[in-house]
Write a protein that binds this DNA or RNA. Structure first.
Length: 491
RNA sequence: CGGGGUGUAGCGCAGUCCGGUAGCGCACCUGGUUUGGGACCAGGGGGUCGUAGGUUCGAAUCCUGCCACCCCGACCA
């Protein structure tokens, strides 16, 4: 095995795969499009989950769990919804296997065919709204604010580790409200929760906006999204929040009695983020040496590498740092001393750089004499000598600085790669030569959007919230336009 | 589903053209020397060569079918 991972410049896709595999985040599984999330990758997900779950609860939501299997007939109750998901559903048709009569292993028992086939959930709107029908009868039952952490299956044509897998982990919030305004406010609140999380914890700047009708979630009236820019200039949708209007309430007959004693359909939202966020995290920050993790979600924030030739020297380092480790842990900083005597320091340095541990501290016999340590930060790869006694204040400050610096770096990258195009030629040239977000006018028609997508593979990522109005003309048709929208090629 | 590629030890590969019973590097195990940026020496274990069939005295190698995975597209979070 080569020691280096592929570089971004020579093969961006391979670089990404190397990060995931060599970084110990996931493995391929025996089933196409599925992956095994390894402990290190899962630890990142757990950290994300912990923060998000608290934010959901702080905004009034509770967790519940709905079943994996959905009766096939449910899916077709909302027309746009089935249109959007039918082509990528895993279907359960039988419930039993038997020994092959021809002696070749095991086969599906033809007598065990299900009366009605079951869909493995690609998302849970249908089963949840079926359930909500029984839970909601009065305005007093509203709002109903429920989230679930679950796995879903979408049988995608082409998969990519974390970014698009056949099965993925996510959370999906499903809320019911008595008014349209309240549901819209909910969808916007959750978009803000996502944006805040991605920017402050993952250190990835995002654009908040709404999707055009073409890009809207199947069954939504309005889809809000956060869009991030990856290092190769492609966009990645990092989270979505949908205002579903009364579409699902009507499809599943969910009505409530108002204060005025009138029957009305309830208003709905749904919102979700998935393990795709791990893909975003990798692609936004990592470099040719490996992962670069923001301290706030790094499974391990600080690693101490002792330099030693024998047990005495190791113990001397351990004695010198044990109180430091306690102090850091008391501040909720994860720290580990790697006392493995089978690998040498250089190997450990390379390994922790690959894994993206934010701060590395090396302490050897010479340091013990001088009372110093070598502190290396992963984001800039800078090293400096610090007094060991100062580390308990230096390290927390450094972690904060790394977190802030990673966000600033990503923000600068996005700003430098957000450009305006006023003609179609310029638009196409930018896509090929300087990929990134492109702000351009379009005439607002789905046909124009489709044509541009067909020509260039670029899509409208979003119409930013609070978008400044500006008169212009559509880059494709020359028709008048009142605002620029954000185009990009996307994952 | 279209295009390209690959299936040989846990991983990465050579061997296939030209058939003779499988090899290298890393990893792993044992012992020793090492340890401030991916250590070294010696010894050792591990593979029905993706799968099914065919040709042949003999197949990783030739022929046919099938399967899987990866990359690039169309679809999507």
């Amino acid at each position: 095995m080569s020691k280096k991972i592929s570089s971004r410049a020579e093969d961006y896709s391979q670089w990404y795969n190397d990060l995931v595999i060599r970084g110990g985040l996931a493995d391929y599984s025996p089933v196409r499009g599925c992956m095994v999330i390894k402990p290190y990758g899962y630890a990142i997900w757990e950290n994300m989950k912990t923060v998000l779950d608290k934010k959901f609860k702080d905004t009034g939501h509770v967790n519940a769990y709905f079943p994996l299997f959905i009766p096939k007939s449910f899916l077709s109750k909302e027309a746009a919804h089935v249109e959007g998901f039918a082509k990528e559903c895993a279907v359960v048709t039988h419930y039993r296997l038997m020994n092959d009569p021809n002696g070749k292993g095991i086969v599906v028992d033809p007598d065990a065919k299900l009366e009605e086939e079951l869909i493995v959930r690609p998302t849970s709107e249908t089963i949840i709204w079926h359930t909500y029908k029984n839970w909601i009868t009065s305005y007093r039952d509203l709002p109903l604010l429920i989230n679930q952490w679950a796995n879903v299956v979408r049988w995608e044509m082409r998969t990519r580790l974390f970014l698009r897998t056949a099965e993925f982990l996510w959370q999906e919030g499903h809320t019911a409200h008595s008014t349209s305004q309240e549901a819209i406010a909910e969808a916007e609140t959750m978009l803000d929760v996502y944006a805040d999380f991605v920017e402050k914890w993952l250190a990835i700047p995002v654009l908040r906006g709404v999707k055009t009708p073409n890009e809207r979630f199947a069954g939504a009236v309005e889809t809000y999204c956060i869009e991030a820019l990856m290092q190769d200039g492609k966009a990645l949708q990092a989270g979505t929040s949908h205002f579903l209007g009364q579409n699902f309430a009507k499809a599943f007959e969910v009505q409530f009695m108002t204060k005025e004693n009138k029957q009305e359909y309830v208003w709905a939202t749904s919102w979700g983020v998935s393990t795709r966020l791990i893909g975003a995290l990798l692609m936004a920050h990592s470099d040719d040496e490996g992962l670069v993790l923001p301290p706030k979600v790094a499974p391990l924030q600080v690693v101490i590498i002792p330099i030693f030739k024998n047990a005495e020297e190791l113990n001397a380092v351990f004695d010198r740092v044990s109180s430091l480790m306690k102090t850091l842990k008391a501040q909720d900083i994860s720290v580990k001393l790697n006392d493995d005597d089978q690998t040498r320091p250089g190997f450990k340095y390379a390994q922790y750089e690959l894994e993206g541990v934010p701060v590395r501290i090396a302490i050897g016999p010479r340091d013990l004499v001088s009372g110093t340590a070598e502190v290396a930060r992963r984001d800039t790869k800078e090293k400096q000598i610090v007094q060991i006694d100062d580390l308990e204040t230096f390290v927390p400050a450094l972690l904060d600085e790394i977190q802030a610096n990673m966000f600033q770096k990503a923000l600068k990258f996005r700003e430098e790669n957000t450009r305006r195009a006023d003609t179609y030629e310029e638009f196409k040239r930018l896509l090929d030569e300087q990929p990134g977000f492109i702000l351009a006018h379009y005439d607002g028609s789905p046909e124009t959007e489709d044509k541009i997508k067909e020509d260039t593979k670029a899509t409208i990522r979003c119409i930013p919230l609070n978008n400044p109005l500006e008169d212009g003309v559509c880059i494709l048709t020359g028709k008048p336009s009142t605002q620029r929208v954000v185009f990009a090629r996307a994952y």
